[in-house]
Computed example of a mutant assay.
Amino acid sequence: MQVPAQFEYERATSVGHALELLAKYGPEGRVIAGGHSLIPMMKLRLARPEALIDINELSELSRIEVVGGELRIGALVRHAELLESAEAGRLFPILHDAERVVADPIVRNRGTVGGSLCQADPSEDLSAAFTAVRAEAVVEGVDGTRVVPVREFFTGPYETAVGPGELLVQLRLPIRDGTGSAYAKVGRRAGDWAIAAVGASLRVDGGVVVEAGLGLTAVGASHFVAVEAEDFLHGGPATPERFEEAGAIAAAHCSPAADQRGPADYKRHLVAQLTTRALHRAHDRRAG
């Protein structure tokens, strides 16, 4: 039987209280909400926190709302709740695309949006989705609140810009007219980590791409972004030929590693195909 090491347990009653507890325990304290990443690591003794700080009662972090031209998603929103949000799906269909392929119903019912992003797994689905739509992460600490672009949020595998004593509290997604989005993924089986996945956001005006966002998962893209392909699309016509070329550029500039999920050249092939597919779908949704 795999059993975690002994730890203290604290239940936060507000964001302020959670920050106080983080300050109390320092680097030996860990926040827990869904726990689907942390608990298995504790059972294997890969993580041995002295204290767990439970934030499940922080209802202020569980809201999905539109405020000031932004879709705001609390860090404690469950995957299932985001998938069930008609407004989120209407404004950003990429979120529903991604949530449908996150793990299984058990994980989606308890796992949280903030927990997924803070885990910063290189194969995580929502990281590429939020990167594609240029979301911003709101991070709160005892010294105040700061806003970090999601494209700067991931500092490395399993590492984020959330510092000691800080808490991710919200994601903010800018709402722009004429924008469509989509997420495309290939995995070995339903609910598995991606072999490769691509999130695309496309804003078109008069047949010209005025903004493109491309997030890549599981293929070694720095900060989950396909910058070169985005730059290629910007200012050009929104045509199938351009989408296909953008896919080739994204594939050429990512750095997939050969592993049990497949060789590097196969993953590059997937990036090219999935980028093209996601761009077509994003464009169709914008037109619709």
Rank of each mutant, 00 (worst) to 15 (best):
G16N: 11
A212V: 07
G26Y: 10
F92H: 06
F224R: 05
G89N: 10
G111R: 02
Y158M: 13
T160C: 10
P40K: 06
A218C: 01
L216S: 00
F7I: 03
P40C: 06
T276S: 14
I32L: 09
L270A: 04
E50M: 08
A250V: 11
G178P: 02
N109Y: 12
T217K: 03
Q119L: 14
V208E: 09
P164D: 08
A282V: 01
L38F: 00
Y266K: 05
A251V: 03
R100T: 10
E65Q: 11
E28D: 14
D97Q: 06
M1H: 11
P105K: 04
K185I: 05
P122I: 03
P49F: 08
C118K: 01
M41L: 15
E10N: 13
R63C: 11
R189K: 10
A287I: 13
F153T: 00
L22M: 14
G163F: 12
A287D: 12
L126R: 08
A98D: 02
I39W: 13
G115W: 02
E20T: 14
G89E: 09
A264Q: 09
G111T: 02
N109M: 12
E8I: 08
V204Y: 01
R72C: 12
A103D: 07
E136K: 14
E166D: 06
H96W: 10
E8W: 09
G187V: 05
E20F: 05
A196P: 01
V219P: 04
A229Q: 04
A129N: 05
P240M: 12
G206A: 07
D121F: 09
H17I: 05
F243T: 04
P240W: 06
S37W: 00
I94V: 15
R285F: 12
L91E: 02
I55R: 07
E81Y: 03
N109K: 01
E244W: 11
A5S: 10
L46G: 11
V107L: 14
P240Y: 03
A212T: 07
V209F: 00
L202P: 00
S116H: 12
D205F: 08
N56T: 15
S201H: 07
L279V: 08
P237L: 14
F243W: 12
V198P: 00
H269F: 15
E228N: 07
V139A: 01
I64W: 08
A278K: 00
L22Q: 04
C254F: 04
A251L: 09
H17N: 14
I53Y: 02
G165V: 08
L71N: 00
R285E: 13
I64K: 01
E152P: 09
A129H: 03
A23G: 11
S123I: 12
S123K: 14
W193I: 15
F224I: 05
V225I: 15
T145C: 09
P4M: 05
S201R: 11
D284R: 10
V204G: 02
R261V: 08
L61R: 02
F130Q: 02
R90D: 11
E211R: 15
E84G: 13
R172I: 06
I106H: 13
A5Y: 08
P237W: 10
L270F: 06
V198F: 03
I249K: 05
S37N: 10
R277S: 14
Y158H: 12
